[in-house]
């Protein structure tokens, strides 16, 4: 015990009051400010991501607001994001790169082949892709939006999103048997496929659907 006693140069007992470390002693509040500035500088992306995530900040509104604090926080919050619903596709190239780890994506607007390719390249980990098409405005007309994706875009998805488990293609009139065939060829993990109101898809597609061994749900 004697040598142990000698080694103890300072005993820290529970409850002992310890003064806050300050870097620059200017006094009072500015100390705390300098100190926080210093600490925030050391707060790396990995540590910040432990705070700015779904588990700690459960309300999406809070996370949205924290993302707007500064560029680092915006970036870190984006990396955490696993699901996204997009209302306006024209600006996808502006904001999608912030969310490279998306697992679920929902796009109900028209989206061109080139934008589909952009999505696939930016978020290759997508597992659930909901592309259920909703027309803007009223439902009266059969106005097919000119620049919606077709079988070529679906092939990009099938080839690029290797983890794809579910895809909803409702009312995507550009989709035909050829696109479904590429799902059959590449999307080996597909469990759910929704092709309701895809008018160009015919019985011919059933053959390629038959090759999807893990399929659990099919809507036609």
């Amino acid at each position: 015990m004697g040598s142990r006693g000698k080694m103890i140069r300072r005993i820290v007992a529970a409850g002992e009051k310890i003064r806050t470390k300050t870097l620059i002693i200017v006094g009072g509040k500015s100390c705390e400010k300098e100190h926080l500035l210093y600490v925030m500088e050391r707060l790396g992306d990995d540590l910040l991501s432990l705070i700015l995530n779904k588990i700690e900040i459960d309300d999406p509104n809070d996370r949205n607001s924290l993302a707007q604090v500064c560029k680092q926080w915006l970036r870190v919050e984006g990396l955490q994001r696993s699901s996204l619903r997009v209302f306006e596709t024209n600006f996808l190239p502006n904001f999608l790169p912030r969310f490279p780890n998306l697992v679920k994506l929902h796009v109900s607007a028209a989206i061109s082949n080139s934008l589909i390719q952009f999505v696939v390249n930016t978020c290759p980990r997508i597992q659930v892709l909901n592309l259920n098409y909703r027309q803007k405005g009223d439902f009266a007309g059969e106005n097919v939006e000119t620049d919606d994706f077709d079988d070529e875009g679906l092939r990009e998805i099938a080839e690029g999103c290797c983890d794809l488990e579910a895809i909803v293609l409702r009312r995507r009139v550009g989709i035909g048997n050829r696109g479904v065939a590429s799902l059959g060829e590449f999307s080996r993990n597909l469990r759910n496929l929704d092709l309701r109101w895809c008018r160009k898809v015919s019985d011919e597609a059933l053959e390629s659907i038959g090759g999807l061994n893990h399929l659990e749900g099919l809507d036609l």
Binding site: P60, S83, F87, N130
Partner: peptide, 8 residues
């Protein structure tokens, strides 16, 4: 405003 978290 264009992109929300979550999927319907």
């Amino acid at each position: 405003a264009w992109a929300w978290e979550g999927v319907d």
